[in-house]
């Protein structure tokens, strides 16, 4: 790790001010991804602005939903009674991620900011356009079993590794960020980006901006939710494919539904077409399967991840069946 300066701040204003002082400064929250990336030499900030003492960790009910502070720990959110009551999908997704130790450290904001686990990104001896723009994509034509089947570009086929973000995108969350020019709101689905020609940009946060909170609007989906994560071992592994499913079922029919996937794209992948098609239809396996097929319309294999073309729709069906109480 290179030497860097370290400053501890206690307010979001001082955090934003401290960030402006040094071009390569970064915010340090839980550190579970950032410190790892610094150890690997992928990221070398010259200043860390420790925001752990900034009071942004509360979870509170608002008139329209829940507001979760960006510095709330993953464990705190997953175990929070309001979250479990209103948004069990979020709790399930968080508990499927990482390990208890990491969840005790990692924050909601940091989880959104976590970078891909693509090995070519982590290993500076290998080409990666995300780490080193213009160096090429090692995963294309290489080891890409874990990689994207949706929205990839010829520059990058990496996937976003978060479970929490899959739930938040399904739940129509809205992010509030603050920067030198004040606060702004970003719908969750617009936060992360597809790689396109600039895979070095994971998301649409502007330099110097700090994530303040995430708001999740109330819905009628809490009775039928399931987060299904398929991985190479039973726990403590990144998703091959994950599906967050939440439904409101009235008289056997799907009144409302949300579907999102992880491990398949550069961003948490919302399945809006499949949702729209399912609305109003009976909650049957046959319909789930049709919706899953619809969700796969633009899926594309990179070779090593061919199996995801089968696994992804199967996982959608299983998640929906489980959410509907049919398993």
């Amino acid at each position: 790790m290179n030497q860097f300066s370290y400053v501890r701040v206690t307010s979001k204003e001082s955090a934003i001010a401290a960030m402006a002082k040094e071009k390569t400064a970064m915010f340090l929250a839980g550190g579970t991804n950032l410190v790892d990336l610094m150890k690997s030499g992928v990221t070398s900030p010259e200043r860390l602005v420790d925001i752990n003492n900034v009071p942004l960790a509360t979870i509170e009910e608002t008139k329209t939903g829940l507001r979760i502070g960006a510095l709330a720990k993953n464990t705190a959110v997953a175990e929070n009674a309001l979250v479990i009551r209103h948004f069990p999908l979020l709790s399930q997704a968080l508990k499927a991620g990482a390990s208890p130790q990491l969840r005790n450290m990692a924050t909601v904001g940091g989880n959104m900011m976590q970078r891909t686990r693509c090995h070519y990104f982590y290993d500076s001896a290998l080409p990666c356009n995300k780490r080193n723009p213009g160096s090429g994509c090692g995963a294309i034509g290489g080891f890409n079993r874990m990689h994207a089947i949706f929205g990839a570009s010829d520059k990058c086929i990496a996937v976003h590794p978060s479970d929490m973000c899959v739930a938040l995108t399904a739940l129509d969350a809205v992010i509030t960020v603050a920067g030198p020019k004040g606060e702004r709101k970003i719908p969750f689905g617009d936060f992360h980006r597809l790689p396109g020609d600039t895979p070095e940009q994971d998301n649409n946060l502007q330099r110097g901006e700090l994530i303040i909170a995430v708001d999740i609007p109330f819905n009628q989906l809490s009775a039928h939710t399931h987060y299904l994560k398929v991985r190479d071992r039973a726990s403590y592994a990144f998703a091959l494919v994950s599906v967050g499913a939440a439904m409101q079922i009235k008289g056997g029919n799907i009144a409302d539904v949300r579907l999102a996937m992880g491990g398949v794209a550069h961003k948490p992948w919302r399945l809006k077409e499949a949702e729209a098609w399912l609305k109003g239809k009976p909650a049957t396996e046959e319909n789930f399967r049709k919706a899953a097929g619809m969700a796969m319309t633009n899926a594309k294999s990179q070779g090593g991840n061919e199996f995801k073309l089968t696994l992804a729709p199967n996982t959608i069906v299983e998640a929906l069946k489980t959410a509907a109480g049919q398993v």
């Binding site: 190479d232 039973a234 592994a237 990144f238």
Partner: peptide
Amino acid sequence: ADYHVPVSAD
């Protein structure tokens, strides 16, 4: 993380 030694849940 990527070379999967079994964990307790396995």
